[in-house]
Design a protein around this nucleic acid. Structure first.
Length: 355
DNA sequence: AACGCGGGGTG
DNA sequence: CACCCAGCGTT
């Protein structure tokens, strides 16, 4: 493959031409506000535009500036992020907002190199912000760009490998027009999203088909190459709903597992579904098993969850409170459950309970 | 270099 | 069911 500069220019020109005729209308387009661009990019990491859109609106409304976000409690930020997944994004977002507001005097970093230092901002996001907000000629390489470049230039390197990432980023940086980097970055992502789609692209109407390696070699289905080795773990969780009056026992999840920082209940995990469950007696009250079984699919885990509940007499409230204190559990009034950031599985369960 | 981290859409 | 999505941090 010997692609000369003229080939690169022709490619970029075609991408920009296609984009001028087929732009997506998106709420974060047209702004140069680095805060809003950053917000949108974090939300869109591994997330479809349609899924992220309502969250972008919620965040801009609740936190119009980086200062508003910096001054918010982390639990509020996580609650607003509830349901979007990859919750470290929300925690890092908040960490960075505080850093920018309190340490940088509210001045948003303006270069690729500086942006890259922000937690949760990697090469893709730093390129996006620096090109969209500040006109820096750093090329974005997301899932769309991997696909478009792999097909058009016939690159068979595994896009999941670090070597592939470097190779594609180097190529992308050669392709980006220095005079309109932001426009080009938007263009190639839209092109990948709407024309050069993962499956069944309509190559017949593609303006780049004559010079596309994959199309001319009939390899569209084979590119890009992505070697996946995701091993899915099956887990069996048994949750305990412990109520006393109007209060429920909740547990804030810690690090080293899914849903860090979110709230669920005391839980026992079974290695096998038929292992017997033991839970220390509370006032000798029996737990009542809830019939419905919940299956919750994550990208890397399959969760099987069951729930039992027990009602503790109000006269033993203080005893229960002490019991919680020792174990890092908290008592939350039913009226305030809505304010807790919860995993989707727990939200589903509560909906079934009429909460 | 390999792995963990959500939830939802699509064929 | 498998694959993918405006990826990143940790080990």
């Amino acid at each position: 493959m010997n692609h000369k500069d003229t080939d690169f220019q022709a490619f970029s020109h075609q991408i920009l031409l296609w984009y001028s005729l087929n732009p997506r209308e998106l709420p974060w387009r047209g702004t140069k506000n680095p805060y809003k661009i950053w917000l949108s990019e974090i939300i869109l990491q591994q997330t479809r535009v349609a899924q992220g859109m309502p969250y972008y609106y919620k965040f801009v409304k609740n936190y119009p500036t980086v200062e508003d976000l910096a001054l918010a409690p982390e639990e509020d930020v996580l609650r607003l992020w509830q349901g979007l997944g990859y919750y470290s994004r929300a925690r890092n977002l908040h960490t960075c907002a505080k850093y920018i507001h309190f340490e940088l005097g509210g001045k948003f970093p303006e270069t690729y190199a500086e942006l890259l230092k922000l937690k949760g901002v990697g090469s893709y996001t730093a390129s996006a912000i620096s090109s969209f907000a500040f006109g820096e000629a750093k090329a974005v390489v997301d899932g769309n760009v991997f696909r478009v470049l792999a097909r058009y230039f016939g690159i068979e390197t595994d896009i999941a490998s670090s070597r592939g990432k470097k190779e594609f980023e180097a190529l992308a940086d050669q392709l980006i027009p220095k005079d309109q980097p932001g426009e080009y970055n938007q263009a190639i992502m839209d092109f990948g999203s709407r024309q050069c789609t993962p499956t069944n692209p309509d190559c017949g109407i593609c303006p780049l088909k004559q010079s596309c390696f994959a199309y001319t070699q009939n390899l569209v289905k084979d590119l890009p190459v992505k070697i996946k080795k995701l091993k899915i773990k099956e887990r069996h969780l048994h949750y305990y709903i412990i109520k006393c009056g109007e209060d429920w026992v909740w547990k804030k999840r810690g690090s080293g597992d899914i849903w860090e920082g979110l709230f669920d209940f005391p839980v026992l995990e079974k290695e096998k579904p038929n292992d017997s469950l033991q839970f220390e007696p509370l006032d000798g009250k029996e737990f009542e098993q809830i019939d419905k079984k919940y299956r919750h699919i994550l990208s890397h885990q399959k969760l099987n969850a069951t729930f039992s509940k027990v009602e503790i007499p109000s006269k033993n409230y203080q005893k229960l409170a002490d019991w919680c204190e020792e174990r890092g559990f908290i008592l939350v009034n039913e009226e305030k459950i809505d304010y807790l950031a919860k995993p989707k599985l727990i939200v589903n369960f509560l909906n079934d309970q009429g909460i």
